[in-house]
Design a protein around this nucleic acid. Structure first.
Lengths: 131, 131
DNA sequence: ATATTATAGATATTAAGAGTCTTTAATATC
DNA sequence: GATATTAAAGACTCTTAATATCTATAATAT
């Protein structure tokens, strides 16, 4: 199993937006170019981030996308959920109560997600900046 | 992202085989019926487990599949790797050295895998037995 | 009014997963 | 040795999700 490319693009975009001075707006054109993507495709991903409240969009001239002013401490998990939805890695197809296998898999998944929830984009942005 | 159904089937089959008295052979017919699968489809999955050395197969009358006599302490991760391959959840498409995002994702993935490596099928089988 | 930029919807393409069918090879039993 | 049984392998189909692309529409700044 793999995370989608979309998740990868979203994470890179978020860090890039975090690095903007004053967290000002950047157009999809520039964001797409940066990652060698078509603007229309990236905009689909960015709309998901917008709906999740992670970024804000303003149409029109001088518009674009910028980091949300209201949502702070955005984590890796926030971005993943926004792009991929809050689905589970594993679900037992044989629906018997309290499947022991599902229990183990779910526990492992939750630990991973808990870790990704504690990883904040801002920390990555700061690290990237200081390089 | 999701683990494949095949992984689910494989895990259930492994536990079932663990529960056999003397760990004797079971035919794909019975294993498939148990999970409401077609035998030919399940056999594809079982062949992967065989090649990975997790189970042993004997063709012919009274043949079937049984837990490997040589490989002990089979973990959840062993089964997952056998079925899905040892792929990574996340790979940065922009191939720059030491991508900070990839680092975070890889670390989280490794922790999860490390946990799944410590979860042994035999323990699940024992729990299931005592119910 | 015009240029710019995001959003939405329709559509096409590709890749992977899921599953079936048929043939071949190996083994046990008689 | 003949026969029945069972796994392995290969070709093939079907479905679904991801990955896009294109066009039209709505919102905003100048």
């Amino acid at each position: 199993m793999r995370y989608s490319n979309a998740t990868n693009y979203a994470l890179h975009t978020m860090v890039h937006l975090m690095l903007q001075p004053e967290r000002s707006s950047v157009g999809v054109q520039e964001l797409a170019q940066m990652q060698d993507l078509s603007p229309t495709y990236l905009s689909k991903i960015l709309t998901k981030l917008t709906k999740a409240g992670l970024i804000e969009s303003t149409p029109g001239a001088k518009g674009g996308y910028k980091i949300s002013r209201t949502k702070h401490n955005i984590s890796f998990l926030d971005v993943i959920y926004a792009v991929e939805g809050e689905t589970n890695f594993f679900e037992c197809s044989i629906h018997h109560e309290g499947c022991l296998i599902e229990n183990v898999m779910t526990q492992a998944e939750e630990n991973m997600k808990s870790e990704l929830k504690s990883k904040l984009l801002i920390d990555i942005a700061k690290k990237a900046e200081s390089k």
